[in-house]
Structure formats: C-alpha cells, structure tokens
Design a binder for these strands. Structure first.
Lengths: 343, 343
DNA sequence: CTGAAAGCGCTAACAG
DNA sequence: CTGTTAGCGCTTTCAG
C-alpha cells in the first residue's frame, strides 16, 4: 500500500528519530564530510532512502550562505549566439554542481540580476551583455558582488572579465579581404556600445587604413539592433547602391545571415558577385543555406574560464581581478571561397 | 568618503537599530502589507536607502517556504524552438515576479529538476520535454510537487498539462497537401516518444488514409534526433530515390530547414519540384532563405497558461489538474506556394 | 564518534 | 500601530 501520495514535509529531525540518532548526525551524513561511524551512516542512509527524504535546500542555503544558483544574463535569445552561450554555460555550471538562473534582458535592465546577488538569491552572476551603461550591475560590482563579465567586457570595472580577441578577429578579416583583392569593401556595423562590436569595427577600420585601403564611408551602414531583419535591410541598402560593395563584413553573424538572404532575394550571387563575412560562428553559419565565412569565438573555453573565476570569487578566494582574452579563429566557408552551394 | 566598498552584510536588525524601531517593524515595511505609521515607514525606508540595505532572500525563502524560483526544463537549445520557448516563458515568469532556472537536458535526465523541487530550491517546474520515460519527474509529480507539462504532454500523469493541438495541426497539413493535388507524399518522422511528434505523425497518416491517399511507406523516413543535419540527411535520402516525393512533411521545423538545404544542395527547386512543410513556426521558418510553410503553435498563450497554472498550484489552490489544448494555425509560405525566393 | 545547543535572517502570531 | 517572542530546517561549535 503506497501511502506517500500526500505531502511529506520530512525534516532531518524525523530522520533522526527514525534512525535513533541525533539530528546533528543526520546532518553529518548528509554533508558526508564529517566523521560518522560506518554503521551509523548506513543506518541513517537506509532510513533516508526508505522515507524518501530530501533535505531542505533553502535551510541549507541560509545556513551556508550559498544557494548554488548562478545568475546568467543574456540578451534577446532571438540572436542564436545567446542560446549557444547559455547551453555551454549551463553545461559548465551543471558540471560544477550549480544551477543556472537566466535573465533575458532586451539590451537593458540587468537590475534584476544585480538585485538577486545582493539579496543572496544567487551566489554570483555571469554577465554576457554588460556595457558601461549597466548601472545597477556596476553598483553590485562595486559592492564586491561576485560578478564575471563574459563576451562583452567593460574596461575599468573591478571584476573578472573573459573575452575573446575581437580586435585580432577583425584584423584577420581585414587582412583576408585585402589580400584577396576585394575592391569595394562594405561594413555593416552597429552601435559601438558593446565592447565586442566596438572592437570589431574599429579594428577593422584601422587595419584597412594601415593597409592603405581605408573604408569608403558610403559603403558603411549602421544598424541599430541585431536581427535577421536589420541585417537584411542594411544589406539591401548597400546592394541597391549604384556601386555596391563586392564584400561585406558584418559585425556579427545574425546580421550576416540577414545579409545573405538579402543577396538571395535580389539574385546577387554569393560569392560570385558578393563576398560575405560574419562574426561569431554560430551554428547556423555552417548550414548550407548560408555557408558563411566568419570568426569563431572559443565559447567553450570562455565559459569554462568564466565559471572557474566565478567559483573562486564566490568561495571568497579574494584574488585580484583577472582579465582573460582568448584567441579567435577565421573560419573560411563558401560565402567567400570560390565554390557555391546555391544553384 | 565612500566607505561601502567592502562587504556589508547588513541585516534587518541593523536597520532597526539605525531607525530606532524594532526589527519586526523593518520586516513590516519591507513586506509592505501590514500597517505601519507613515512617518515610521518613511524613516525606515530612508535608513534602508541610506545604508543600501537589501533583505536576505534566503532567509525570507526559508520562512515563507517559497523561493520565487521556477525551474524550466528544455532540451538541447540547438533546436531553436526551445530558445523561443525559454524567451517567452522567461517573460511570463518575470512578469509574475518569478525567476527562471533552466535545465538543458539532452533528451534525458530531468532528475536534476525533480530533485530541485523536492529540495525546495525551486517552487515548481515547467517541463517542456516530458515523456512517459521521465521517471524522476513522474515520482515528483506523484509526490504532489508543482509540475506543469507544456508542449509535450504525457497522458495519465496527475499534473497540469498545456499543449497545442498537434493532431489538428497535422490534419490541416494532410488536407492542404491532398487538396493541392500533390501525388507523392513524403514524411520525415521521428521516434514516437514525445507526444508532439507522435500526434503529428499518426494524425497525418490516418488523415491521409481517410482521404483515400494512404502514405507510401517507401516515402517515409524516420530520424533518430532532431537537428539540421538529420533533416538534411533524411531529405537527401528521399530526394535520391528513383521516384522522389513531390512534397515532404517534416514533423518539426529544424528537420524541415535541413531538408530545405538538402534540396538546395541538390538543385531541387522548392516549391517547383518539391513542396516542403514543417511544424512549429520557429522564427527562422520565416526567413527568406527558408520561407517555410509550417504549423504555428501558440507559444505565448501556452506559456501564459502554464505559468498561471503553476502559480495556482504553488499557492496551494488544490484544484483539479487542468489539461489545456490550444488551437494551431497552418502558415502558408513560399515553400509550398507558387512563388519562389530562390534565384 | 555523537549529542546538545546555538543560531543563520527573516516572518508571523501575540500582546500591548 | 509597534515591540516581543517563537521558530522555519539546517550546519556547526562545543562537550562528552
């Protein structure tokens, strides 16, 4: 006869009683670390199993001052880069025995995350979308809340920061494009608020200048947000110029995918008439429909690093603030090479 | 001189002392609900602001037996449907003042989520990937843990379930395809474990039979997982048949996108030579590169419903278990209509 | 090795 | 309206 179909708010006290030990002993076998006589431990464990007891996490959290929750702030999940980061961060956190609470902020309001750290609802925060305008977060950082910035970083903030080398990535694109002899170089850029975007476009510009091929301002267009549609529209504009570019560098992949579709819609052959280069190497970039040359960020390593840093900080090892910057890789695909997938 | 650059583990007691009131009064102004004299309240609030105090969430959670965390289980975020669901669920939860903790299970192990409810680390769980094989979750449900199933449902489980009408959706596809006079009807199906998939493919089959156009088994192929690649491969197989289908129904959009790319890679014109139909209406389905006819699930309404049900259950209104099933909509795009985006 | 006892910071009666 | 008083379920000394 199964009787536990109703509520069973068991506590360690109940277990103690049933196992004829003190409540403290139950606690000891649960934490596993302290010395308990093997027989006693077995007896207690048996009762726990028998009664299907689970310790109350909140009580433990309150006592230990640690929830095991890590907040992760991403921006609109519509940009496939963020789901990918979430997936990877989730894996890393799970492996570390932590839970991931997600805030999806539409380019604004990381206040919720900042509050949550300050209220001890999460042990720390991994921030993928920080900018110098992230005021509530900045305050949290100043109060020594465990925060690590990943992907986007903010110079001067006293916290751990993990990024990839966006400057180098953009330089490799500039070098590639010039070496390939492209003449009319287009750029679809964005607001220079995020460090990633800023570094990419400014490095791209200055490298081109260095190479004696400064960007023609009429071939540069700025989008105010990152989506397939804005990329589509921006690329359409450039393609409709009397003298359209023969290569476009897009500051991220979503933009580039939109641009690819704009070319498709106009019957512009890629890479025949137009080369297209993105940034991030999201999964879709490799799909035959896009087959996009792009710059890959080492997301896995970045996530791993970020989680490690955050754990150190949460556990109070008050080391200095690290700034790690990992190398990127130019991934050449059909949107710039000679062959084409399109019929 | 800013002195709070160091740790400040303030408690309501500290505020009480500074505001010359009892600690209980501080608690009262924080919860806002109980009667406090306006002047007192103001004084306390002033001190709180002044000292930048934030109440300790864990202590509150322990007292109220409510964390404000809701677990959401999704499967591999590589399927764009899940990020979309996460985004929408996140919005709904945020609006309800709740936090979203995410578990990304690769088609397995929702055990972590089940544990978390049982340990009171989350108030409830929204499950998007349940199947009859989800044992740990089933146990949690049997113990009355607040769980709601969304998207995929499992017949017979005593918990709230929110789905869309996959049967009707598939029927509308069958009707559409037959009415349009397609002759060789292909199907890319999956393992019938998830209710969504099972309902779609079985309804599609039986409707075709009803219409006197039973499915030709040689035009059916089953994939063992859902990704762009598996869709690509499955479609490639069908297209390489001596007599390939002139329409393919894919049990979800990711598969269909892969199929679209397979057609592209082979130079098969869509919709000229091949019609393509997916299911879910993920954001990318509308991109010009795919322009996919598909069936839309009312995700927003489903999420809203699920969160509402979960809140009721968490707050202990021990109503009966609801099963809501919302209508779907056939969205016709270029992959079946007369025009084409491809050059 | 184990039990007794003291709280973690808060909410919620219960008196005044 | 406000203060006093109990704990929530656990971890962690401190004795024995």
């Amino acid at each position: 006869m199964n009787t536990n179909s109703s509520y069973l708010p068991l506590t360690s006290k109940d277990i103690a009683k049933a196992a004829k030990v003190s409540q403290a002993t139950v606690s000891r076998v649960l934490s596993g670390n302290t010395n308990v006589q093997p027989e006693t431990r077995e007896r207690v464990l048996a009762v726990i199993r028998e009664m299907k007891y689970r310790p109350n996490g909140m009580a433990r959290a309150m006592r230990t001052n640690r929830t095991g929750n890590i907040g992760v702030v991403v921006s609109r999940l519509a940009n496939p880069l963020y789901p990918e980061m979430l997936q990877i961060l989730g894996q890393e956190l799970t492996e570390a025995g932590l839970r991931m609470v997600v805030w999806n902020t539409d380019e604004t309001d990381e206040g919720a995350a900042a509050s949550a750290v300050r209220e001890s609802l999460v042990d720390g925060v991994i921030m993928t979308t920080a900018t110098s305008l992230s005021t509530p977060l900045y305050e949290a950082v100043m109060m020594n809340a465990p925060v690590v910035l990943i992907h986007r970083v903010v110079e001067g903030w006293p916290c751990d920061q993990v990024s990839s080398d966006n400057t180098q990535g953009a330089i490799s694109v500039a070098d590639y494009v010039v070496k390939a002899g492209r003449k009319r170089i287009g750029l679809i850029e964005g607001a220079p608020l995020a460090s990633t975007i800023r570094d990419r476009q400014s490095a791209f510009r200055s490298r081109l200048t260095e190479l004696g091929r400064p960007l023609d301002p009429s071939l540069v267009i700025r989008v105010d947000s990152f989506s397939h549609k804005t990329g589509f529209d921006a690329a359409s504009y450039l393609l409709d110029l009397a003298q359209p570019p023969d290569v476009m560098f897009c500051v991220n992949d979503v933009i580039a995918l939109g641009a690819r579709d704009a070319a498709r819609a106009r019957g512009v052959d890629v890479p025949g008439q137009l080369w297209l280069i993105g940034y991030d190497d999201i999964e879709m970039a490799a799909w035959p429909a896009f087959d996009l040359t792009t710059v890959r960020q080492p997301l896995k390593r970045m996530a791993h690093e970020a989680v490690a840093l955050l754990r150190d900080r949460v556990s109070g090892a008050s080391l200095d603030h690290s700034t790690v910057c990992l190398p990127t890789e130019l991934v050449i695909r059909g949107s710039t090479a000679g062959h084409r997938m399109d019929r």
